[in-house]
Lab assay of single mutants.
Amino acid sequence: VHTTPGLPSGWEERKDAKGRTYYVNHNNRTTTWTRPIMQLAEDG
């Protein structure tokens, strides 16, 4: 699994054909234009 540093585990930053940045979530095979926020791990 490709992961971009600074993004949550399983996420990758890519660019489309027009050079726009988007983000790929390999965990559930989705994409988004919005940069994901790293969540702190919570117990329980």
Rank of each mutant, 00 (worst) to 15 (best):
V1I: 07
V1G: 02
V1Q: 03
V1E: 12
V1M: 07
H2W: 03
H2E: 11
T3H: 06
T3G: 11
T3F: 10
T3L: 04
T3Q: 03
T3V: 06
T3C: 10
T3D: 12
T3P: 03
T4D: 11
T4Y: 09
T4F: 08
T4N: 08
P5T: 15
P5Y: 13
P5G: 14
P5W: 13
P5K: 15
P5S: 15
P5L: 14
P5V: 15
P5M: 15
P5E: 15
G6I: 01
G6F: 01
G6K: 14
L7D: 13
L7I: 08
L7K: 04
L7S: 05
P8Y: 01
P8C: 10
P8T: 08
P8E: 10
P8V: 08
P8S: 08
P8K: 08
S9T: 11
S9C: 11
S9F: 09
S9P: 15
G10S: 02
G10M: 03
G10V: 01
G10H: 03
G10R: 04
W11T: 02
W11M: 04
W11V: 06
W11P: 00
W11I: 03
W11R: 00
W11G: 01
E12V: 05
E12L: 03
E12I: 04
E12P: 00
E12D: 05
E12A: 06
E12W: 01
E12R: 04
E13A: 08
E13L: 05
E13M: 06
E13S: 08
E13G: 03
E13W: 01
E13D: 01
R14Y: 05
R14L: 05
R14A: 09
R14V: 10
R14Q: 07
R14K: 14
R14W: 04
K15W: 09
K15A: 06
D16P: 00
D16G: 01
D16E: 01
D16F: 00
D16R: 00
A17R: 01
K18L: 08
K18D: 15
K18N: 12
K18S: 09
G19K: 03
G19A: 09
G19V: 02
R20I: 06
R20S: 11
R20W: 07
R20E: 15
T21L: 07
T21I: 12
T21A: 11
Y22W: 03
Y22G: 01
Y22M: 07
Y22T: 01
Y22C: 09
Y22P: 04
Y22R: 02
Y22H: 00
Y23V: 02
Y23H: 06
Y23C: 00
Y23S: 04
V24G: 01
V24A: 06
V24E: 05
V24L: 08
V24R: 05
N25I: 01
N25F: 00
N25C: 03
N25W: 00
N25E: 01
N25Y: 01
N25D: 10
H26E: 13
H26A: 07
H26G: 05
H26M: 11
H26V: 08
N27G: 09
N27L: 10
N27E: 11
N27M: 09
N27V: 06
N27A: 10
N27H: 04
N28A: 08
N28C: 10
N28G: 06
N28M: 11
N28V: 05
N28R: 06
R29C: 08
R29M: 15
R29T: 10
R29E: 07
R29G: 13
R29F: 06
R29W: 03
R29P: 01
T30R: 04
T30P: 01
T30A: 07
T30I: 05
T30H: 05
T30W: 15
T30E: 10
T30C: 14
T30S: 11
T31H: 02
T31P: 00
T31M: 04
T31V: 07
T31G: 01
T32R: 02
T32W: 01
W33S: 06
W33I: 06
W33D: 06
W33G: 04
T34R: 10
T34K: 13
T34A: 11
T34I: 15
T34W: 07
R35E: 03
R35G: 04
R35T: 01
P36M: 00
P36L: 00
P36D: 00
P36H: 00
P36C: 00
P36I: 01
P36Y: 05
I37A: 14
I37D: 13
I37P: 14
M38G: 11
M38K: 14
M38I: 13
M38A: 13
M38H: 08
Q39L: 08
Q39N: 12
Q39W: 07
Q39V: 09
L40D: 13
L40H: 13
L40C: 12
L40R: 14
L40F: 09
L40A: 15
L40W: 09
L40Y: 09
A41Y: 04
A41D: 13
A41T: 15
A41H: 10
A41V: 09
A41C: 10
E42M: 07
E42Q: 13
E42F: 15
E42K: 07
E42T: 09
D43V: 12
D43M: 04
D43T: 13
D43A: 14
D43C: 10
D43H: 09
D43G: 14
D43R: 10
G44D: 09
G44S: 15
G44L: 09
G44Q: 14
